[in-house]
Amino acid sequence: MEVITSLVIVFLVAMVTNNIVLSTGYGICSYIGVSKNRKSAIGMGCALVFVVFMASLVSYFLEMLLVALNIEFMQTIVFILVIASLVQLVEMICKKFLPSLYQSLGIYLPLITTNCVVLYVTKQICDVEAILIAAGVSGSLANNGFFNFLFAMVYALGTALGYFLCITLMSTIRNRIDYSPVKRGFAGAGIALVTTAIMVLAIGGLSGIF
């Protein structure tokens, strides 16, 4: 029973209070470009959720292999290669078997290779105990192998959904900003960043709630 409540807590913490963009600031790379338009934002968010989930699935087991072979410092290289090949594989499968899905989502898949979120999540799930402690749940729950895996997957899913939430909200706000007079230099990126600062303050008020 305690495991199930901890799973829900980890998911909600990863999605809302420790939102990856608004709380740690990692997903900014393509954020400003893609959040101009509601459709692009939703497309990018969905593609990212899918890629993050699959990449964390693969990299969880790869990390165990790397630790067994005692070559842990190859983590960055191996993970980025795995992420990039996964993105290409997903794009290939979408092109061949799911063309309607490719029309809406496939365009954003190459952007995800250089997105900080995916690499950050795959690196974080190597240390599940730190995730649990950051979420305020007792770290001893991570001792069992299967629960370790569950927590890692839930964290990955929560983080990706948090990114999706943030980018969709930002795109709707920017749609409204487009109709307001903005000072000359600030149009585009400047006002988007300032608005994100206010969103960070709003989300910061929810910290510690779980």
């Binding site: 290669l81 990039a84 090949s85 290409q88 594989l89 794009e91 290939m92 092109k95 061949k96 063309p99 490719y102 029309q103 496939g106 365009i107």
Partner: peptide
């Protein structure tokens, strides 16, 4: 990775894209 990338660049995009 190189193999998958090469195969991906060879598969055609669906028609309406």
């Amino acid at each position: 990775f190189c193999l998958i990338y090469y195969l991906n660049s060879k598969t055609k995009k669906p028609d309406n894209c």
